[in-house]
Design a protein around this nucleic acid. Structure first.
Lengths: 168, 168
DNA sequence: AAGGAACAAAAATTGATCTTTTTGTTCCTT
DNA sequence: AAGGAACAAAAAGATCAATTTTTGTTCCTT
């Protein structure tokens, strides 16, 4: 599964006019390189290895990238700039394709948080690791209630008047 | 700097009545173990190594944990349960103590997201890595605008009427 | 000119080993 | 009984070589 596929369903509407698709933006590899800041070498390699694969071609057989492809490429570049390796980007997208199908809203509602080795996906109050799909949000507020609950189910603590004068 | 210190400033108010501190909860190591689910071995080791250090003592010299300590201990336990190693917990707390001092609201407003290797702290629209303090949120929505901007500063793309019939 | 192939350098991952940290258990002291 | 010390097992982190992935450069083909 490619990045293209995982992003495909949201941006094509941008190139419609009056509700009807009139034309479709289409970019050559050189243009894409100029716009995204990626090298043509990267574009070719990523295409060959399935990361972002353009789906249209000129009559002469040359690939043409869509606007959607541009978004995908730019996202990948941003991840690289955050020191996420390409191999991790691939893995992230694999797991995203397992989660995104259940999402109705456009991808615009997603946020990614990238720190070091991890890419987190935020969507609709949920957070999960784009690599593993693992999910665990941990509000500290809960802890206070939790400790109080645990405390109540136990023998009452000593009431330490003796120690009031001491430092916290 | 200990976990205790980083959490100290919020929960003590819970044991005041009518605005005046009347008494202070105080727990023995055994009680703490029973309440938090940690072993006495862990409590002793964590105290010796500075992770959670109780600040009050019985006349006989025995340590007594505060309610604040319980919160800290429970938080640490939850992190361990999320497969965050103790060494990472230590590092998280070190960097938290660099950030928390600037926070006015109670810790209750924090949320942590824990996945595998990373502990993220959410506070007031901000997100940062509790380990490194690094901060990078990456809303996908921005990408669309970004690509459009990049595109405008470049020669207009080919208008590909030719390719309308092809799959995308 | 545009894309593809070949070669090489750079970057990242993997696996194995070694060191350090953490925890349980048992025994000792008060 | 409570805590501390000692020993050992388990878990985690650090290091390093070998392998794989990724990218740049150059040359070739159409």
């Amino acid at each position: 599964m490619t990045f293209h596929a995982s992003l495909r369903h949201f941006s094509d509407s941008r190139i419609t006019h009056g509700g009807v698709a009139v034309t479709r933006s289409s970019f050559s590899r050189q243009q894409v390189a100029a716009i995204t800041g990626l090298s043509t070498r990267q574009l070719g390699y990523w295409r060959k290895t399935g990361l972002v694969v353009p789906q249209t071609f000129t009559p002469g057989g040359h690939a043409r990238y869509s606007f959607t492809d541009l978004i995908a490429l730019r996202a990948a570049k941003r991840l690289l700039e955050a020191n996420v390796s390409l191999q991790r980007v691939r893995k992230c997208l694999q797991s995203l394709t397992r989660f995104l199908p259940t999402i109705e809203q456009p991808l615009v509602e997603l946020s990614l948080v990238v720190t070091g080795d991890v890419v987190l996906v935020f969507h609709d109050q949920q957070t999960f690791d784009a690599l593993t799909g693992q999910q665990w949000v941990f509000p500290v507020a809960e802890l206070v209630a939790e400790v109080e609950r645990l405390q109540k189910s136990r023998p009452a603590p000593e009431q330490g008047e003796l120690f009031l004068a001491e430092n916290c």
